[in-house]
Design a protein around this nucleic acid. Structure first.
Length: 433
DNA sequence: TTTTGAGTTGTTCGA
DNA sequence: GTCGAACAACTCAAA
């Protein structure tokens, strides 16, 4: 056995401009690139045709091909990382492991465990910032504490940003340090217990879409958003490249959305309990109705409110929902139906291609009112007014919920004015000191 | 320490 | 139809 370095890919599924890979390639030993299908995560997925697993598999196929072109190969494993790593160490003489940092609670725990194990084996575990421009402790208040309000965080984020932060890592210059070996077995989706999903995946060429983003982003019938969430989730594009392009085009509004992404990642890192509990504890006093039939109707897009139903159908069919509509359906679930935001959060987690724990939790807590810097509780979206403002010609609704073209319209699951009064009363009571 | 200004995305009501 | 105020205080950030 000859000594090697391992670069472990997780949610950074690309070979270009990859911090961990770059540093691994510049180390002393040839680099083997590894991916583990994590059984701990996959066994929880309800759908054997989960589109995200298909997407990962597709991306790994590309990476495998690129590595083969350079005389190397991707090593793919399936199982629990804590069991896989000892096995890898038996097969290879591993001198060091390189990976990009992942900030979710599960990932932190997994990586802390691995670090401990590797150290006990005398192996270095090097981790790098790659997923974000600024990590949890790089944009903080003068007193050293994390921000909980977006706007001051955003201002300092912009002020801190320099050309250095968006410089890409020229990994391809060092591909000659990839471990040379015969192609290793490449599992099919079936091998790991999944089947091909039907969904289509958005492209990574977002550049043209930045132009009219701020004027058009609120109209769900217009295809004006970049659909980059999925690629940022799995690291199939580099955040540095993306931010650089936003700067180049002066796409400030769009850039601010990228800052929201880092804001919520930072929040989840400092307040990991907010994945399960209200960020503002008093909101856990709300007595939710949690009616299961109404929840089912919401999931299926059968609430009788056109924009809510269209949004849920789009989600169910494509794994995507337009941002404006996400807010409307979330507000509707929490406020009109008085269903716990966690139910909605879990449903989005199951369905969204671009699902990211920190943003999803942040968004749901915002809509519910329980989040940091959230919408005030008395702000109840009016689905009819939102429809009139943002889909006045009903193009979006007709596309996803064509039954609204018919003369007999579905009955609303609950009257708006009644629901509004009800939620204001329930919230007011729960939030009383 | 105290003070001051501000805080993602909205709705309703009444003039 | 349009406009401004009220909605409810509270907490955060920074001077």
């Amino acid at each position: 056995m000859k000594p090697i370095t391992i670069c472990w890919l997780r949610r950074d599924l690309r070979l270009e401009d990859n911090a961990a890979l770059y540093h691994a390639l510049k180390s002393n030993y040839p680099v083997l690139v590894v991916f583990i299908f994590d059984e701990n995560i996959l066994q929880k997925l309800a759908n054997r045709a989960d589109a995200r697993v298909t997407f990962i598999h597709q991306q790994l196929t590309k990476i495998h091909a690129a590595l083969q072109k350079n005389g190397s190969s991707l090593l793919i494993k399936y199982g629990k990382p804590e069991e896989i790593w000892p096995a890898i160490l038996k097969d290879y003489e591993v001198k060091a492991v390189y990976a990009n940092r992942d900030y979710e609670p599960y990932a932190r725990k997994r990586d802390d465990g691995l670090a401990e194990f590797l150290i006990s084996e005398g192996i270095n575990f090097h981790t790098f910032k790659d997923q974000v421009i600024f990590e949890k402790d790089e944009v903080i208040k003068a007193d050293g504490k994390p921000y909980t309000v977006f706007t001051p965080y955003y201002r300092l984020w912009l002020k801190t940003l320099t050309d250095f932060h968006v410089q890409s890592y020229p990994t391809e210059k060092y591909f000659n340090n990839l471990l040379q070996l015969e192609p290793l077995p490449f599992p099919t989706l079936k091998d790991i217990g999944f089947v091909q999903a039907q969904q289509k995946f958005p492209a990574t060429n977002f550049e043209l879409r930045l132009k009219n983003y701020d004027q058009q982003r609120d109209y769900p019938a217009v295809d004006a958003t970049t659909r980059l969430g999925l690629h940022l989730r799995f690291g199939t594009v580099s955040i540095r490249r993306v931010v650089k392009e936003a700067q180049r085009q002066g796409a400030d509004k769009w850039l601010s959305e990228l800052v929201w992404r880092e804001f919520y990642m930072m929040i989840l890192w400092h307040f990991p309990h907010s994945a399960q509990q209200a960020f503002k504890p008093v909101y856990d006093n709300i007595i939710w109705r949690n009616n299961e039939q109404e929840f089912k109707a919401w999931c299926e897009g059968k609430t009788g409110y056109p924009i809510v139903d269209a949004g849920m159908r789009q989600l169910n069919e494509t794994g995507f929902m337009h941002n404006r509509v996400r807010m409307v359906v979330a507000s509707f679930l929490c406020k009109h139906l008085l269903i716990d935001w966690r139910w909605g959060e879990a449903y989005f987690a199951e369905k969204l291609l671009d699902y990211d724990l920190s943003s999803n939790v942040g968004g749901w807590q915002w809509a519910c009112g329980s989040g940091n810097d959230a919408a005030p509780y008395f702000r109840v979206f009016n689905p009819a007014l939102q429809l009139k403002k943002f889909d006045p010609k009903m193009e979006y609704v007709y596309k996803w919920a064509p039954e609204y073209k018919l003369p007999t319209l579905p009955m609303p699951i609950v009257d708006h004015t009644f629901a509004r009064d009800r939620v204001l009363k329930v919230y007011k009571k729960a939030l009383q000191p």
